[in-house]
Amino acid sequence: MAYKTAAEPAVAPAGTAARPPDTTAPPAGPARRSGAWTPWLYLAPALVVLAGLLVHPIYQLGLISFLEYTQAQVSGGEPTTFQGLGNYRTLFADSQFWQVLLATVLFAAACVVSTLAVGCALAVLLTRVRALPRLALMLAALGAWATPAITGSTVWVFLFDPDYGPVNRMLGLGDFSWTYGRLSAFALVLFEVVWCSFPFVMVTVYAGIKAIPGEVLEAASLDGASPWRIWRSVMAPILRPILVVVTIQSVIWDFKVFTQIYVMTNGGGIAGQNLVLNVYAYQKAFASSQYSLGSAIGVVMLLILLAVTLVYLRLLRREGEEI
């Protein structure tokens, strides 16, 4: 790693925390053994919180996915029974599940690419405009970021309403209904998702760009590099750890989109054409009280996201990066 960046120090404290026993502890046997536990002692509070808030729910999720657990079982009307992989079998035999999964993957991919493109472009723009427009852009972005998803979605639906929406009037689309067609409905939701998640990318990348030493950029432009070339060959490599974090975050967020689909397409669109995995899981788990089937969907989502993240980190490592 050639450059000091924001992401790197995160690794350092963990590395040094393991070292003290070697340097400070006296060489006597018993003391050394107690020293080996010291890092765990320091980590204990965080681990306890993690275990309570993260591991336990995931454990329950996994457990419920192997049971027959519907409203009747929760309220004691019928005994809870072990189903083995029954819920997963039901799920994988359901052709709708595969359609929804495919739609979710494609939709999330489109959202991630668009969000990153818009976020990075605006971050670069931020470094090139004067203070006042920069402030205005920042405020607009923060406003979008701070808007609750429900509010944002409702406003966007109104903006694109076939009867009263200003967008159709401005574009001269008449009473074109955005939510009727499958692609146009997904496009509408994509606009909203990009709108509310680009600020995170923009602000993070902007901070990263500001941390790039000025002389590097200056040298590049003295060598006659175009702005695109500077981004590709200087900024992007330096910003790589930041871009990795931002990408993983976006993948996770966009894969789990719920509110926007639920509000804007009225719970999954005409005949369920706009269902994504999370809304599908909600329909199964809560609307129709099949908690066990909903849990199975949750587990599948968890595994997919875990796999995507691990593969991504693996690929980066192969290219010689360490984060």
């Binding site: 336990h56 454990y59 419920i64 049971l67 657990y69 929760v74 309220s75 809870t80």
Partner: peptide, 11 residues
Amino acid sequence: ATACAPQTSGN
């Protein structure tokens, strides 16, 4: 550390 089954209530 935790109970092994999700909760069921007696009604």
